[in-house]
Design a protein around this nucleic acid. Structure first.
Lengths: 205, 205
DNA sequence: CGCCATATTGAGATATATCAAGTAAAGTGG
DNA sequence: CCACTTTACTTGATATATCTCAATATGGCG
């Protein structure tokens, strides 16, 4: 499939809220992107963090303007596919149409999962689920990265950056979480899974 | 478009979690349905409340089994469309394919909105947004209904049923919300919009 | 090396969960 | 149709978790 490729530097926008939709879809080749919205009170809501292989723009199919903005969290390579090309391929290969349906369906399922995470009452629970989820996405790797700021994580989980910090510290103190600059591992994977499932955990101590 | 029609009584399941996907989509002709998941700690998460005109099953396109269950909140009439028929129509009428894309895209956007609501910190804020949102969906009507239980609302908003009750009472006491058995109106629409936007509101008093 | 942004940590205020009691509504069987 | 049973809803008092505001520490970058 013929594609154009875009280079983004850390902090660059792929598109902004209220931009006209340019009839293109994007696929992340490398790097990380955050999809965000502004909430009524001026704050920022992170819709999703997207990494290599993820499609960007599915939420804007046949829409007039963007409901969300997309910013690069690291330097990125983004492949760009025009709708016309996509639909042509879908017409010629019925199988790819199925795959595309699965893609959209999967996106919806992902959002449902995210919503479920936001309803988990406890803060550590949400943070634990977040760490586990990023690790799962890393396809069996032992380590994952946190290219976004604490504030971004907070805006994603519906917490404050202080609370996120405290939760991470609590997990580190117990030795269940090991963090470098950006990368982390979970030596206490099973314990973290317990926390994610709702096991209580004091933030102090 | 040729369709079969199903009748559901209040409380009946359209499908359950882990059911095999039967290659059909559903459209609600009349009545209300809730889409739910079980969360890890045994509780219930409401994904979405769906009313007349809504499509059910978009999250299961090309999936093997259901990730969510669907239950009738009232007696319902449900139209049922096999995938095969749908894809045939989409092939013949390019315009309908666009419309279908829009439908999926809109579903994703709706989930993003829901997630945004869950990140609104205050409880009254979430409840106010919920009431306003149902009113918007009622296409300009002055009244909307709450066919679901308080517990369902709580599971949708990430609160407890007690808190939902308290919030509704607080809005009623101020005369901004008028409730009958199931239907409600918002005499203080603008005030409720302020609350939804983040204006503080004491639950007692 | 020093500055600036980001992250961590602390102490106190506050909102919501929890537990429990009381009330209203809905369904059931005579 | 009415008493009875059961479920759902409302409301109260308390505990606790998270937010808020502020101070300190860390790391990145010129």
């Amino acid at each position: 499939m013929e594609q154009r490729c875009i280079q983004l530097r850390c902090g660059d926008h792929l598109f902004r809220v209220s931009d006209a939709v340019d009839q293109h879809l994007h696929i992340i080749r490398s790097g990380d992107i955050k999809l965000y919205q502004h909430c009524r009170d001026g704050g920022q809501h992170i819709i999703e963090f997207l990494g290599p292989g993820a499609w960007v723009g599915l939420e804007s199919l046949n829409e007039q303007e963007r409901h969300a903005g997309a910013v690069a969290l690291t330097d990125c390579e983004i492949a760009t596919v025009p709708y016309t090309l996509l639909t042509a391929v879908l017409d010629r290969h019925p199988r790819s149409a199925e795959a595309f349906g699965q893609l959209l369906s999967g996106t919806i399922a992902r959002h449902q999962q995210h919503a479920a995470m936001l309803r988990s009452t406890s803060a550590v629970q949400r943070v634990a689920q977040f760490l586990l989820h990023r690790l799962e996405q890393a396809q069996g790797a032992v380590r994952a990265t946190l290219p976004m700021s604490r504030q971004d994580i907070a805006d994603y989980l519906g917490l404050t950056s202080s609370t996120v910090s405290r939760c991470l510290s609590a997990l580190r103190r117990r030795g269940w979480l090991a963090m470098g600059q950006r990368a982390y591992t979970l030596p206490g994977l099973q314990d973290v899974e317990m926390v994610a499932a709702g096991a209580p955990l004091a933030l102090d101590c």
